[in-house]
Design a protein around this nucleic acid. Structure first.
Lengths: 131, 131
DNA sequence: CGGTATCCTTGAAGATACTG
DNA sequence: CAGTATCTTCAAGGATACCG
């Protein structure tokens, strides 16, 4: 896991707490940057949603990946899971304050991309044109 | 590739330009969130660097992945590649304005993580404690 | 020095089926 | 309804070797 990375960084003379930050930042960025997390966070921005609603709202996600993603988010305290003892069962997911705060930070990045997408796709197209 | 995703989104009645943004945002976030891009961007923040220097500075990256990462960044116009006709050859990479701008946006997110890492790791530890 | 090509391993994620 | 379990596929990424 991250043990070797830590070792490498320490070996390079990087301060321990800085190493810790680097490792966690990577962890969280990897999570945010994965295929679904951002979309789930964004879907939850307007309020609590239940599993099936999320499944329908996030286009293309499988039941399995939705379960995994929500599990990870809840584990990290970014969402809460509330199960109601009803028949049929109902489970709602909601952003925590921490989750909302992260969603805002992500939004900042998303805003940047939205603002510069033309520039990037143009650059890419131009680079590809040269083969 | 992204064709099916586009199709799914369109099918769901999402506005075409919005679909485009979603797709590009995912693309760019996936790139930023990958294992190395952020670290390379961060390494380049203080000025141009040559290939070998980057290889040493970014702990644990393989030559292959450094090549790939720099290729992608350059393709997207986030870095420039300058080769000097010398012996031995020298190649320097440098952030473009666009790249610096992205690095700043990423920094914002990194700042968030750095600020909340304790909270997250605590939550995770607590969740794990319950098995 | 600064890469690219090749091979190979492994983990991420989809499809499908089953359960409280 | 809200998941988990199992199987399988597929591509990211590491090791290694080679080349301009």
């Amino acid at each position: 896991m991250n043990a070797e990375l830590r070792a490498q960084l320490v070996e390079r003379g990087i301060a321990p707490d800085c190493v810790e930050t680097i490792v966690v930042v990577r962890d969280v960025l990897a999570r945010v940057g994965d295929k679904w997390t951002m979309l789930v966070l964004s879907a939850l921005k307007d309020g609590p949603m239940r599993f099936t609603a999320l499944h329908e709202h996030v286009a293309g996600i499988s039941q399995r990946m939705l379960g995994h993603t929500l599990g990870a988010l809840t584990r990290d305290g970014l969402t809460t899971r509330t199960a109601y003892a009803e028949v049929p069962p109902r489970v709602e997911y909601e952003l925590t304050d921490l989750g909302r705060s992260l969603a805002a930070a992500v939004d900042h990045l998303v805003g940047w991309v939205a603002q510069h997408q033309d520039e990037i796709t143009d650059n890419r197209a131009r680079a590809d044109a040269l083969d």
